[in-house]
Design a protein around this nucleic acid. Structure first.
Length: 292
DNA sequence: CGCCAGGCTGTAA
DNA sequence: TTACAGCATGGC
């Protein structure tokens, strides 16, 4: 395995937390080594203090995938300054959650792999989603090394597969979404390149054209694959947190369900352009690591 | 058993 | 616009 040393600016970094906090699925930890798929390649990663051992990617690719060059001090400063502008004081709850999940990074996933993953994530839990992704990879993935390990299936493989086989991979009613989305990407090979050029609102609209992609899945893909660090996925956990801790500041009508965009727009206003990072720190919990 | 899960789609008001 | 049923199925 190759090695890279985390610099002062890249520290602290927490590989376990970054891979287990629900932004990527299907990665397995055996002993102290993680193995998973990224960009059609089988990748192994291991962290020992400030050393990252890696295989399957170049140093540059690992650094990008793990978000190691994200300026965390600047990001935290930006979030705090927006909070203070809004609040006139630090946010005790956020500070607590941030310190509990310090070392997390927003990964830069492959767009297609991220898209498939989050279509699979709908109305499910992290543990089940990971199983689901691994079943899909084993059943439909492309063989990519001597050990007969598979990477993500190509769009046209999903487009052509028969639905019952895909349903056998714990996908349930999500199977038709995957097939139709595979077909769309297959018919629009430049789709992701186009989305890359778009600003956040347009990119979100574009993604939501895909079957099985609503506002939440779109935000996940924008945050975890397209580097829109202002995207705020609002799932049930984030919704509960916002309702419990921020309903007053949001001035939301608490007599009924707060609309998705009201929460997302408030977070962008309150946390600033790195709202996606703030969201991930609110979302993450250390006990996710024990699952998997 | 009953409720929940990193929700989306279609339909009705 | 907002509200809500229906969807499949594992975890707990």
């Amino acid at each position: 395995m190759k090695t890279l040393t985390l610099s002062q600016k890249q520290s602290p970094f927490d590989l376990d937390l970054s891979l287990s906090c629900g932004q990527i699925f299907g990665w397995r930890k055996t002993g102290d080594t993680w193995k998973g798929v990224h960009d059609k390649k089988i990748v192994t990663l291991k962290q020992v203090e400030n050393l990252i051992f890696y295989e399957g990617l170049s140093k540059k690719q690992v650094t990008r995938f793990l978000g190691l060059d994200d300026p965390m001090d600047k990001i935290l400063e930006s979030v705090r300054s927006h909070i203070i502008t809004y609040n006139h004081e630090l946010d005790v709850y956020f500070e607590s959650k941030y310190s509990q999940s310090e070392g997390i990074r927003i990964l830069r996933q492959n767009p297609w792999e991220c898209l498939v993953s989050f279509i699979c994530s709908a109305n499910s839990n992290v543990r089940t989603i990971s199983k689901r992704i691994n079943l899909i990879v084993e059943e439909f993935g492309t063989p990519c090394n001597k050990n007969n390990e598979h990477s993500f299936p190509e769009p046209d493989t999903l487009a052509r597969c028969n639905e019952p086989d895909l349903r056998n991979c714990l996908t349930g009613y999500r199977a038709p979404y995957l097939i139709k989305t595979g077909r769309f990407i297959n018919e629009h090979p430049d789709f992701f390149e186009q989305v890359k050029k778009m600003e956040y609102p347009r990119a979100k609209e574009a993604l939501m054209v895909l079957p099985g992609v609503g506002p939440k899945v779109a935000d996940c893909v924008l945050l975890f694959a397209f580097e829109h660090l202002n995207a705020v996925p609002v799932d049930t956990r984030i919704r509960r947190i916002m309702e419990e801790h921020y309903a007053d500041i949001m001035k939301a009508d608490q007599s009924r369900r707060i609309p998705y965009d009201t929460i997302g727009n408030f977070c962008r206003d309150y946390f600033g352009p790195y709202a996606g990072y703030a969201q991930q720190h609110l979302f993450a919990t250390r006990d996710n690591e024990k699952g998997n």
